[in-house]
Amino acid sequence: MSTIQEIQKEIIEDFAMFDDWIQKYEYLIDLGKELSPIDEKYKTEDNLIRGCQSRVWLHAEHTDGKIIYTADSDAIMSKGIVAILINVLSGQAPSEIATAKLDFINKIGLKEQLSPTRANGLVSMIKQMKLYALAFNN
């Protein structure tokens, strides 16, 4: 399994191939469509991430020293964003996730590409994923 740093590097390389926002958005939309479905029983009020303007559900499970995240959203762009984060963080150890520096976000222009409210959603998603990691780490 690649490390968080290695996966980030790959994503940065992927995004470097895109010329404009349309291609970036289309890529996010594709990622959203490809995201493995979350078990319906985890789409609860409790699993909703606060701070997102669309509904984003995130579930985390701790098995064999690794965290497996699953997520869903009713908006496809949000789903694409959470899919990228899952690609980077899911399957890693809690301690790795809790201390991960996610610098790919700025390098692929995600933050500037996304509207401010959406960027807030992104921040909330990362915060929630790290909170799970901290909880499982203890």
């Binding site: 958005y25 908006a75 496809i76 762009m77 959406r118």
Partner: peptide
Amino acid sequence: LHPYDIGMI
């Protein structure tokens, strides 16, 4: 479609 997706694009 979700309205946010439309608005963002």
